[in-house]
Simulated assay, not measured.
Amino acid sequence: MDIEEVLYTVGEGVERLVSVLGRATRNLLKPQKSETPPKFPISSRIIRRRNYTVHEMMSLHLQVVFFLYLAANALAVFFPHALYSLLILGFIYTIYFRWVTHRYGDYLIEPEPYTFFYSVASAIAFFAFLGFVGLRKLGVEVYYYYAYIIAITGLVIIFRYLFKSRYGRDYTYGVVEEVKNDLIRVFVHDDIAANVKPGYYWVPAVPDVEPDRVVKLLIEDRALKGAVPVRVLEVYLESQSSQSSTEPKAETE
């Protein structure tokens, strides 16, 4: 092979590489809606049940990525070039979060509350760590750190209040799995707006309730446990599997 053929082969390889990188960059910056559900093999291993829903997977993955981002930031503030580290981490996280929510957001039962919550929470975390780095550079007294922590805590409380006032509700939806005497067992998806964790709950039975029916459930906040369903408010006409969306499609009986 002469030098001309070598250069031609190298040129083709570079052209293919540039093309692949260009497509990857376009897909990352301008993601298209996916027609197939996400898999997220690492996050899926955290869920021990085999019959988890796509909504659960999406919600869990957003949580995992967010907590990894917090942990990375907590380590980065002690790096020699902490400011640049935080900026790079924030850029990578923002690009990935935007890609996930744009490409797979439709697989969340109610995407807007999740997008809003993690977007604002991530911004608060970024500026909180950024401020901590600034205080370290200024070399202030320790009581400034205490005041800063109190300020960030107050900001988090305000955000929680704003989120609840905008998206919060005192009900959620579930699918009846079992009717047993005066009780029914319902499956409830993860519901960030109602602050309900995914799982199975027992609530008092009501007339006309049958397995696979969608029900609207009143929830009750409990300290340190989040909210839990306590009773059925409405029974909907359609029947469906608990592994599909629990959003009702018909009026109540």
Score class of each variant (00 low, 15 high):
M57T: 00
F91V: 07
R16M: 05
A128P: 00
E5V: 00
N73D: 14
H55W: 06
T36H: 08
A71T: 12
V77Y: 00
S245V: 08
V176N: 03
W202M: 13
L17S: 10
V142C: 13
E56K: 01
G139P: 00
K164R: 12
G199V: 02
L75S: 10
V20R: 12
V140A: 12
I157R: 09
V228Q: 13
Y96F: 08
I192N: 06
S19N: 10
F163C: 05
S122G: 10
L135K: 06
Y148C: 00
L183A: 12
A147T: 11
S34W: 08
F79G: 03
Y8K: 06
Y200G: 07
V179T: 11
Y145E: 07
M57N: 01
I184V: 15
E234D: 14
R222H: 11
G226H: 14
I47L: 12
A82E: 02
P113N: 08
K164W: 11
A194D: 11
E253I: 13
V203P: 05
A223K: 12
T25F: 09
L218P: 00
E5Q: 07
E234P: 06
P31C: 07
R49T: 00
E234I: 05
D106P: 01
I124T: 13
A74D: 05
V140W: 07
V228W: 08
R50Q: 12
E234M: 03
W99L: 08
I149L: 15
G131S: 13
V20E: 12
H189V: 01
A194H: 02
R166D: 01
Y236D: 07
G131V: 14
L217D: 04
E247P: 02
A250E: 15
T36E: 13
H189I: 02
G199E: 08
F187M: 02
V215N: 10
E251N: 11
R48K: 01
R213F: 10
R166Y: 09
Y96L: 11
V196T: 14
R169A: 09
Y148R: 04
L217E: 02
E5G: 04
V100T: 06
F187E: 09
S241T: 14
E15C: 04
V203R: 03
Y171L: 05
R50W: 07
P198T: 07
T172C: 13
A72R: 02
F132S: 04
E210S: 14
A147K: 09
N73I: 00
S19D: 14
E12A: 11
Y201N: 01
S44G: 04
H189C: 06
L62R: 03
V175P: 00
H61G: 00
L83R: 03
L89E: 10
V206Y: 05
E210H: 09
R185M: 05
A123E: 13
T153K: 00
K30G: 02
F129Y: 15
K225W: 12
Y145D: 15
G174N: 00
Y201F: 15
E141L: 11
V175T: 15
A205C: 08
P38N: 06
T252L: 14
T94R: 03
I47A: 09
